[in-house]
């Protein structure tokens, strides 16, 4: 029974990734797309967790933490680009 529940969960994850992809394509402004991409990253993270149960392996559990860190760093970089136009600022010389 748990296998059917996990397969249903994977199907719903892919459905929600498809719905979020609609927002990435259509989104009127750039922060909309950045937020939707962050949500897609978080969906992939939980899909990896479910897949590691389905395949009965412990090897994918590091990817969860790494994907979370990468999604956060990507969001912060997009934020700085949207706010100031640069990601890494130069030293001010005054």
């Amino acid at each position: 029974m748990i296998d059917q529940i996990l397969m249903l969960a994977l199907a719903l994850f892919s459905l929600s990734i498809a719905i979020t992809l609609y927002r990435v394509i259509k989104g009127p402004s750039m922060p909309d797309r950045a937020i939707a991409l962050d949500t897609i990253g978080v969906n992939l993270l939980s899909a990896i967790a479910i897949v590691s149960i389905v395949l009965k392996t412990k090897a994918y559990l590091e990817a969860i933490l790494i994907l979370g860190i990468l999604a956060f760093i990507g969001t912060i970089a997009f934020t700085k680009y949207i706010e100031r136009g640069v990601v890494v600022e130069r030293k001010s010389n005054h």
Binding site: P31, I64, L65, G68
Partner: peptide
Amino acid sequence: RILLGVLFLFITGPVGGHIMSRS
């Protein structure tokens, strides 16, 4: 590692949403 991932997501998810809407 899963517990660390839960803690990290609990800290960084709301921070990411706040900082994105502010900018």
